[in-house]
Every structure is written in C-alpha cells, then in structure tokens.
Amino acid sequence: MAYTPQYGPGTSVVSENRRKQMNPKLAFEKMRDVNDSDIVLLLGHRAPGSAYPTAHPPLAEQGEPDCPIRKIVAPTGGAAAGDRVRYIQLVDSMQNAPCHPYQRTYVECYRYRGIDPGTLSGRQIVECRERDLEKISEDLINTNLFDPARTSLRGATVHGHSLRLAEDGMMFDMLQRCVLDGGTVKYVKNQIGEPLDKKVDVGKMMDDAWLKANTTIFHSLVGTPFRDDAEYIEYVQRIHSLRTKYGFMPVE
C-alpha cells in the first residue's frame, strides 16, 4: 500500500491549517498581488531590472565532473545560472499570524528544492539562489502564509513577535518598515531597514475572524488553545516520552 503522509497530528482548525500549508499537493490561496519588482525592492539584494550577480559561471559553461548524483538531481534555475545565495527573513506575531517559524520551515522543505532554512523562536530565514529566492518570496508574500500586519519582512532588528500589537493592529517594529496608510499596509523600508524610493503596497490587513480561522499557531487568549486539541497533546507527549526514555530502552 502506498504511503500517504499525514503531515501532522491534531483535530483543531490550527492543525488542519498546518497540514494544508505543508501538503505540496494543495496550492496556496492567492491573497494579494505584489509584483516581482516590488518584491526585489523589499528584499533589497539587487536593484529591480538589474542582472543577477553571479557567484560562479553557469553550470553548463563550467564543465561538471562525472558524478552519478548530478545526473539524477537537476539543478534549480538559480544554481544552473550560478546566482549568489541570498535570503528572506520573516517574523510572525504570536497573535494569530497565519504562519510561524517552525511551520515555515516544514512548508518550505516539503515544497521547494535547493533551500537552507534557519528556524528561530520568532523569525525564520530561508537562504537559496537569488532567482529561486524571488520565486519563493512571491509565494511567501502573495498567499495565505502572509498577513500584512502580523507577518513582517525583517532582515535585521526583528524584535516584536511576542509583544502586544499596536493600537492600529500592527506588530511592533523598532524600525517601522511598514506603515498603515489609507487602509492598506505599505512598506517604506526594505527588509534590513533602508528607506525605499517608493512605497510598496502589500494590501489590507486581514480581519480577526480570518486570522483565527487560518492561523497555524495556538494561543489560549486570542485564538485556539493548545489544550483543546487532545490528539496534538497526546502526540507531543508521546514524542517527549520516547525521546526521554530513548537512551535507556529504545522501545515503547
């Protein structure tokens, strides 16, 4: 019988959302339309329209050694062209953000090739070749993984994911990279805090009901409490118990 991945335990809406995001057979829901050049501006790695700087010659010109693995694995577009490795880093508020760092890493590992994610408590960075990065960033910003108010692009000075929101509903950002302007959220700085020549509109912030229904983070005050998901607790306790006992007797 063919193996069907389950992606994660749980019966709550949060666990269902986690599974939906991780499953590469399900497409993300498109929520907004930030264009390519705006994404390049937000990332701040190169000027929009400029050529991709390279770290090495294209693989076709370089002459690859005779290697069976290279014959099996096709290089990604960025690797084939010899692009530099660049990053995007996102911060997710604990107040019902649609995605969160661990979840992001799982999602990216299931869906993309040639990436190097780094997971921290409040932020998640993913590194890959520049042109691959721009495609991934498009997915991360334009789909249901992103909320303009509670998810934020922050390359540095990331503090804010665990704080209260501001009066207008925005997550605290010491550098105020994005502002609420005329009902929509606009980025005025790129991800590392350098001012942009033009504002980049990332659309309206999602309402509380949508966030509660689409979040992948448990929260006992503003969202779905972890304790309400008995199946998830049972799974976490089982893993914890096995890990603890493993050194002594690696059987259940």
Partner: peptide
C-alpha cells in the same frame, strides 16, 4: 519597547530611523 533614533545594528546601522 525602545525606539532608537538611528538603526542600531545590522547592514543599515547608523541610518536615521523615522518612526
């Protein structure tokens, strides 16, 4: 939380920080 007048660290260190 503190809001600094200039970006305190990172690649944009020293750039004014309007907030």
């Amino acid at each position: 939380p503190n809001i600094p007048q200039v970006v305190p660290y990172g690649p944009a260190r020293g750039v004014p920080n309007p907030h």
